[in-house]
C-alpha cells in the first residue's frame, strides 16, 4: 500500500524550486504529506491547479497506534489532520495528511482560501482540540461551550454508563 511512487498528477503540482512533497497512493487515491510549514503553499498551488473545493477537513488521533502508512521522510506525530480537496474540472480528488504534534496542536487555517472550511475546522477544534491559527471563530461547535476535554481523542473515554436495573422513579 505504501508505494513511494509519485503519480503523474502529483508531479505536476510540485513547483520545481520547492523540495518535493512526499506522496503516496492509497487504494488508488492520491495522498500528499505536506508539513505544517508548507501546507498553505501546497494548498495554494493545488488551488491554482483547479482544486477549487475543500470537501472535508477532519483529523485522526494516532495515540494508540503510531504505526501507519507514511513515507520515510515524514515524521509521524500524534495527530493527523486530513484535508480532502476536489477538482471539478479534472474530476479528481486529492488528500492531504498533515502531521500535528501533541505538544503544539496548531495548524494554519484554510479560511482565506476555502471559507467553507470554517465549520469543518471548528469541528476538528471541538472534537480533537487542534487549534487553527487565524480562524475567525475558533469556538466549540458541537459540544456545549463549557464542555471539558476533546471527545474524539483516543484518551477520552467513550463515557459509557453501565446499565443498571433500578426501580422506576415514583412507581
Amino acid at each position: 500500500m505504501s508505494d513511494e511512487e509519485t503519480t503523474e498528477g502529483v508531479e505536476e503540482i510540485d513547483d520545481p524550486n520547492d523540495e518535493e512533497i512526499p506522496s503516496t497512493v492509497s487504494h488508488g487515491q492520491n495522498v500528499l504529506h505536506p508539513t505544517r510549514e508548507n501546507l498553505l503553499e501546497v494548498i495554494e498551488n493545488l488551488r491554482n491547479e483547479g482544486f477549487a473545493v475543500c470537501i472535508d477537513v477532519t483529523a485522526v488521533d494516532y495515540l494508540e497506534n503510531p504505526k501507519r502508512d507514511l513515507p520515510i521522510t515524514v515524521k509521524p506525530e500524534r495527530f493527523e489532520v486530513v484535508i480532502n480537496l476536489l477538482s471539478h474540472t479534472k474530476r479528481e480528488r486529492i488528500r492531504l495528511r498533515v502531521q500535528v504534534p501533541e505538544d503544539e496542536p496548531t495548524l494554519p487555517t484554510l479560511f482565506d482560501m476555502y471559507p467553507g472550511s470554517e465549520a469543518l475546522e471548528r469541528e476538528v477544534h471541538d472534537l480533537f482540540g487542534i487549534h487553527f491559527e487565524g480562524h475567525p471563530d475558533m469556538t466549540r461547535i458541537l459540544m456545549p461551550e463549557d464542555w471539558e476535554g476533546y471527545p474524539l481523542r483516543k484518551d477520552y473515554a467513550v463515557g459509557e454508563i453501565p446499565v443498571q436495573f433500578k426501580e422506576a422513579p415514583g412507581s
Binding site: 500500500m1 492509497s26 487504494h27 487515491q29 470537501i55 472535508d56 477532519t58 485522526v60 501507519r68 502508512d69 486530513v82 480532502n84 480528488r93 488528500r95
Partner: peptide
C-alpha cells in the same frame, strides 16, 4: 487490512463521504 480511504456518494443532499482508517 490497515489503511485509509475516502469514498463519496451523491446523497439527496450532496456529497456524502466516508473517511475510514
Amino acid at each position: 487490512p490497515a489503511g485509509e480511504v475516502y469514498v463519496a456518494v451523491e446523497s439527496p443532499r450532496g456529497e456524502l463521504g466516508c473517511y475510514m482508517v
